[in-house]
């Protein structure tokens, strides 16, 4: 039992960046295809990150570099807790801490746009937070436990009763999935190409670490998607994996349906959706089932 846990944790630590990168690549490619372009390879994010790392460290890293690394640490910790089968709530907490430290890192960078980006990142996290809590609560009400071990290995398949929550999860917290760490703003429009993101204010190596941290975070978020289907049986495991990949595809498509939304409207709509879908779904679970 313990060996299994250790193995799965190690597997996460080693493979998650690649998994995250490939899922990012899938999203980017599908998004490009939807725009009529031929996007790059699926493994292009890995190439990008390696190219960045090859350039070495610049002179600018300081406290912000430290906080980017702390953010990476908490993203990895979130995944470790998840793959060790522990509390789902702790996972969400660590993900949140990861984002918080990224916000701090961005606030500490010298540029004005970086601090704006930090604020927007905080706002994005706040927009996504209620939905995350509701997903966790939905799992608890349906499957009776907060532990990932119980949710993944046993218990009823949570997908259909939690359909509303799943839809909300696709739309809202997965907003983080749609945006690469280099673009912590609304989906990039051409005229916004020059002031891209908070990661632009970082030093080279820190930007690479920021990207890797975002891959870990994405892997954890996709793992939560997997939880919606997981049952412990082989069939549902396969279904879960397929659906996770389909989610990446879906994100690419959603990115093109949702236009470069005004930040205010995006926030309000996120909360409104979370409120409506969440209440409806939770009421259904509580009362009908």
């Amino acid at each position: 039992m313990i060996i299994k846990t250790i193995l799965s944790v190690l597997a996460f630590i080693v493979f998650a960046p690649f998994a995250g990168a490939i899922l990012t690549g899938i999203t980017r490619k599908i998004s490009a295809r939807a725009q009529g372009r031929d996007g790059g390879d699926i493994t292009q994010p890995i190439s990008d990150c390696i190219a960045l790392l090859q350039k070495g460290r610049g002179e600018n890293s300081g406290i912000q570099g430290y906080y980017v690394k702390v953010s990476l640490f908490f993203n990895v910790l979130a995944g470790v807790l998840f793959y060790a089968g522990m509390d789902l709530l702790m996972t969400i907490a660590c993900l949140g801490l990861g984002i918080i430290f990224m916000v701090i890192a961005a606030s500490v960078s010298g540029t004005y746009y970086s601090r704006l980006g930090a604020d927007r990142l905080a706002r994005e996290m706040v927009a996504a937070a209620p939905m995350m809590f509701m997903v966790a609560i939905g799992f608890y009400v349906r499957c009776g436990s907060f532990d990932v071990k119980d949710l993944a290995m046993s218990g009823p398949v949570a997908f259909l009763p939690l359909l509303g929550l799943f839809a909300g999860y696709m739309l809202i917290p997965c907003g983080k999935l749609r945006r690469s760490s280099f673009e912590y703003r609304m989906p990039h429009a051409m005229y916004q190409k020059d002031m891209n993101s908070i990661a632009d204010a970082f030093d080279r190596k820190d930007a690479a670490i920021c990207e890797i941290g975002s891959w870990y975070e994405k892997t954890v978020l996709y793992s939560i998607t997997y939880l919606f289907f997981a049952n412990g049986t082989l069939l549902m495991t396969a279904v879960g994996v397929v659906c996770t990949v389909l989610t990446a595809v879906l994100q690419g498509i959603i990115e093109n349906i949702e236009p470069a939304a005004d930040g205010r409207r995006a926030f309000k709509s996120a909360w409104l959706w979370a409120f409506v879908i969440g209440i409806v779904n939770l009421v259904i679970i509580y009362i009908i089932i």
């Binding site: 406290i63 918080i100 961005a106 601090r115 996290m125 706040v126 937070a129 809590f133 509701m134 979370a274």
Partner: peptide
């Protein structure tokens, strides 16, 4: 439950912003 979820989210916001500007 709703109150908890939503207020919890808002509570993160002001602390995070303050923390960012403090360290800055």
């Amino acid at each position: 439950v709703m109150i908890m979820c939503f207020s919890g989210a808002i509570a993160i916001l002001y602390w995070t912003r303050w923390l960012g500007s403090l360290i800055d």
